[in-house]
Simulated assay, not measured.
Amino acid sequence: MKFAIALFSAPHAPSSRRALLFAQAALAGGHQIVRLFFYQDGVYNASSSVVTPQDEQDVAQQWRTFVSEQQLDGVVCIAAALRRGVLDETEAKRYQRSAINVDAPWQLSGLGQLHDAVQDADRLICFGGP
């Protein structure tokens, strides 16, 4: 089965960890992940500026490692990212900001990427949200 996964919650939220565990289990079960799409507060999972307390799991780092090692398509909604100060090099230059906190394996892109993923997947699985 091919999954598209959308994550709407920040790394400290339980649903972010659940999404990661689901994604890991899906691949371990022989399924495919068409795309991971981080939206709303989910964009914080791609930020290298997130600092996790020592007594908690660093879910943002776990996502980064997972996406890199599995060579997955990790897309971060550009509108949600900009609103929250989550910037890659291109957007930092465009908006004349000095902070860059998103780099590989993440890609900033539009909501259309989620739509495309849904068209290619058998199922859309969403975690977190309003």
Rank of each mutant, 00 (worst) to 15 (best):
A80C: 15
P53A: 04
V43R: 01
R35D: 00
A81M: 10
T65L: 08
D88L: 08
Q57S: 07
A80Q: 01
Y44A: 04
V76F: 03
K93H: 15
Q54T: 09
S49P: 00
G42W: 00
G74K: 10
V43W: 01
P53G: 07
S68Q: 06
E91S: 10
S48P: 00
N45G: 00
S98V: 12
Q54M: 09
D41T: 07
V86C: 10
S48V: 05
C77Q: 01
R97K: 15
E69M: 06
G74T: 13
Q70G: 06
R83D: 13
I78L: 15
D73R: 13
S68K: 04
V86R: 04
D58I: 01
L87N: 08
C77A: 06
R97L: 08
L82W: 08
R64Y: 02
L87K: 07
Q62K: 05
F38V: 02
L82Y: 04
V86A: 08
Y39K: 00
A46P: 01
A80F: 00
R35N: 02
Q57G: 08
F37W: 01
D73Y: 12
T90G: 01
D41A: 05
F66E: 09
G42R: 01
E69A: 11
S47D: 01
Y39I: 06
G42Q: 05
R84K: 13
E89F: 05
R94Q: 14
V102N: 02
G74V: 07
N45A: 04
T52Y: 06
A99L: 12
D58S: 07
Q57D: 14
D88V: 05
S49D: 09
D103V: 07
E91C: 10
A81S: 15
L82I: 10
Q70C: 13
D41N: 05
R94D: 01
S98K: 09
Y95G: 07
P53Y: 03
Q57C: 03
F66T: 08
Y44V: 00
E56T: 11
Y44E: 10
K93S: 11
Q70V: 07
Q62M: 13
V59Q: 09
Q96E: 11
I78M: 12
L36R: 03
R35T: 07
R94T: 14
N101C: 14
L36K: 09
T52G: 02
C77I: 00
